[in-house]
Design a protein around this nucleic acid. Structure first.
Length: 534
RNA sequence: GCCAAUGUAGCUCAGUUGGCCAGAGCAGCUGAUUUGUAAUCAGCCGGUCGGGGGUUCGAAUCCCUCCAUUGGCUCCA
């Protein structure tokens, strides 16, 4: 068994071998010879790979007395390897199939120069400083408790404030875009999820159903808001004139994710989706879809997410069993998304097998500090749930028709979005979002009165500020405020009190001079204005 | 769920041949200080050593188990 204690030994051995400057030889072999070689060697894994290769395409690489199956290319010789680092050891299922044997996999990296390896390791350390779990703790945004349970985040006051501002921002955008807020319960009868298909698909891997004093009655913690919103749609008959209807809810859902999957705020078992479901006629699908894309773009722009990928997630054509609904519906839904992508000229990548079980989607992926990609925004076209829930509207022809459903969450979930936002900003949130915009630092308690007066004026202008009244030196107060990433520090002493001014220090930048209180208020308001409307 | 590792005060971490009352810095509290752009000084408070079980005269340290966390795998409605 290999563990981290062995890394050093492995690295040393690798370097020792590399110094021998052995050459790699590429050799074409027949399938028959290849099978013969690995049969003698007793390597069942290579034999399995070879069995799927075409005769004539098989190549071996030889290095000293070691021969391996490999398509290549390889380095010409081992001499170019100057620096190696074994990064981690992990179990990996053979060919990625969890039903098969797990092999031990070592992860490592090499550079042609020692200096480049060192630079890489420094970058890795830098990235870890932006880890949302670390910053979330430092800035008192969220926490977890063993007693509450794994993957169930507790939002602390500052984190809750931040999240509420994000929610309000989106609520305003949605109001303007014609969404109507709805509110639904956190549980629903098991039958509801049988209708939606979620029970068949995920029932076994969910939190166990909640039983009641009544024999046979069972409720599920809601893992999705869609079934509830379908029931809202069904609460009254709809005319084509009413469509589209857009029901929005910050809905908290619970999913029993595998324990090994949990990761900070990015993968949790209880989270709040900025969910909405749009019910529209088939003709309206593309325009509605584009309108949702515009909302996603607006959010990404307001928060400076420039580096994102747009992924179109379609059905796995070789495994249609995993999905509900007819081929015809899937084709309609998939082509709608592909056409919209085409028409908007967005740069997209298409992934097969990544669709939701009820429909294809367009996902907006953003990277974390270590370059791992996370899905934030998602837009999904669904012809299937409307059928399962027998949703209808009356058309101009006075006949009943089936609406199309668009599921969408521009943030994805509040938890994951805040996590990625923290890593992007290193905790230095835009001024419109940050829990504390300014902190007033009186030079000594002689200026406490004046500090309170400044605070009152700032509060009147809806600027979020506090006073640091501790009996500490100014240098200490500044240091603490810098570490807490409070954007503006207002130093007040004799000079400022006399003239009704504040000395302004910008976090990370230093002293930016003395302003009147009104000038400071204007400064903040201008900055907020610029951030939201860019 | 699987592989590997980790879990000592609110935070960051010391504490290995098993053995004195388990330590430090920061934070907090009290007092002194009244401070001008990244750490003032002193005192005090604070720990079921993740939980449970076991081995031992004796366990933070060794074993088992559960919980949680980290890096991967698988999964991701």
């Amino acid at each position: 068994m290999i563990s981290e204690n062995d890394f050093k030994k492995i690295e040393d051995k690798m370097l020792e071998l590399a110094r021998q400057k052995q050459e790699f030889f590429r050799k074409k072999v027949s399938k028959e010879d290849a099978i013969k070689y690995f049969t003698e060697k007793g390597d069942e894994y290579k034999l399995e790979l070879i069995s799927e290769l075409e005769d004539g395409e098989i190549t071996f690489y030889e290095l000293g007395n070691f021969t391996d199956l490999c398509r290549g290319p390889h380095l010409p010789n081992t001499g170019v390897i100057k620096a190696v680092k074994v990064l981690s050891v992990a179990g990996a299922y053979w060919r990625g199939d969890e039903n098969r044997k797990q092999l031990t996999r070592l992860y490592g990296i090499t550079f042609p120069k020692k200096k480049e390896l060192d630079e890489f390791l420094v970058r890795l350390e830098e990235a870890k400083k932006r880890d949302h779990r670390k910053i979330g703790k430092e800035l008192e945004l969220f926490t977890f408790s063993q007693s509450v349970g794994a993957g169930l985040p507790l939002w602390l006051p500052k984190g809750a404030q931040l999240r509420e501002r994000l929610e309000n921002f989106l609520k305003k955008v949605q109001r303007e875009a014609g969404y109507e807020p709805v509110i639904t319960p956190h549980i629903g009868k098991v039958e509801l999820y049988k209708t939606s298909g979620h029970y068949d698909k995920y029932g076994e891997d969910s939190f166990r159903p909640i039983s009641t004093p009544i024999e046979g009655e069972e409720f599920f913690l809601k893992p999705m808001n869609c079934p509830h919103h379908c029931e809202i749609y069904k609460a009254k008959p709809h005319s084509y004139r009413d469509l589209p209807v857009r029901y929005a809810e910050f809905g908290t859902v619970y999913r029993y994710e595998q324990s090994g999957e949990l990761h900070g705020l990015t993968r949790v078992r209880g989270f709040t989706q900025d969910d909405a479901h749009i019910f529209c006629t088939p003709d309206q699908v593309k325009d509605e879809f584009k309108a949702v894309m515009a909302i996603v773009m607006k959010i990404f722009s307001a928060l400076d997410f420039k580096d994102f990928a747009v992924q179109i997630s379609l059905r796995d054509p070789d495994d249609t069993e995993k999905y509900i609904g007819t081929d015809e519906n899937w084709e309609k839904a998939e082509s709608a998304i592909l056409e919209v992508a085409e028409e908007t000229g967005l740069n997209t990548i298409v992934e097969y097998g990544e669709a939701a079980f009820y429909g294809p989607k367009m996902d907006f992926m953003v990277k974390d500090a270590l370059g791992r990609k996370w899905q934030l925004g998602t837009i999904q076209v669904d012809y299937n749930l409307p059928e399962r829930f027998e949703l209808e509207y009356v058309g101009a022809d006075n006949e009943k028709h089936r609406p199309v459903m668009i599921h969408r969450a521009p943030f994805g979930s509040m938890e994951r979005f805040v996590a990625v936002l923290i890593e992007h900003t290193e905790g230095k949130f835009p001024i419109w979002l940050t829990p504390e915009q300014a902190i007033i630092l009186p030079i000594s308690e002689k200026y406490q009165k004046y500090a309170e007066k400044v605070l009152k004026l700032l509060n009147n202008s809806e600027i979020r500020a506090q006073i640091d009244s501790r009996s500490e030196k100014t240098g200490k107060k500044i240091r603490d405020a810098e570490l807490k990433r409070i954007p503006y520090m207002l130093i007040v002493g004799e000079k400022e009190e006399g003239q009704g001014l504040v000395s302004v220090r910008r976090q990370g930048k230093g002293d930016i001079g003395t302003l009147s209180i009104q000038e400071f208020v204007d400064l903040i308001n201008d900055e907020v204005e610029k951030e939201i409307n860019k």
